[in-house]
Design a protein around this nucleic acid. Sequence first.
DNA 1: ATGACATATGAGATATGA
Length: 260
Amino acid sequence: MRIATWNVNSIKAHLEQVSQWVKAEKPDVLCLQEIKCEDQAFPAPVFEELGYNCAVHGQKTYNGVAILSRFSIENVVRGLDGDANDDHARFLAATIPDGKKAVRVACLYLPNGNPAPGPKFDYKLGWMERLRVWALKEMQNEEPMVLAGDFNVIPSAIDAKNPKAWEKDALFLPETRAAFDRLQYIGLTDAFRSLHPGAPGHYSFWDYQAGAWPKNNGIRIDHLLLSPQAADFLQSARIHRDQRGNEKPSDHVPVEITLA
DNA sequence: ATGACATATGAGATATGA
């Protein structure tokens, strides 16, 4: 099963690029973040035409996540438990059976958290702990599980071209990285990093500003974290950096893994 | 230092992003 994640920075604004990529790459599952539209405005027919089922947890203007799948989408969960006041559409989970195995897939758009310190940073850290609690509970099933999405976390210095520039940023602060570590300590594996240990220069986001892309001034913040049962199937991980060079691109590119 | 750039809303300027 090939599973990809992509923060598309508005599905309406980048529908042509996303649909072209799906047509070319044909992932089995694609997790989308920042669709920035409500459920009924999601262009599901475009993807259904390409052979996909769609589950959408949308929101007007901000956030919004969706899962596309060539297989059926079952046991859908919309939103993350643990905070009744949280009305951001940032979390969507579903079980995807491919005929041989079933993979629990969580599509997530973790809060940015800037400026830090402040209420937005507190929200980010709280959200990360809620995600840890959710994932820990799911781990008890001892089944393949993938947490895929825009984590808004730079795990280590090698995941940024200029780590110094991010030292006071919510994406790279010690508290953020510690929360990401705690999430991994329940037994999750960073798919890309596990296959490319110590390799610098692999990024999934480049800012639109200040010529970040031509300077390759990027960061790796889009991740797929695997339960042990999913990690056992891990064959490859790939960042589709070429997508950032398209005309009018998203500022993120797809990250894809193969489980076989 | 602030803004640079991009998107949505809504029709100008502001909020958000990372």
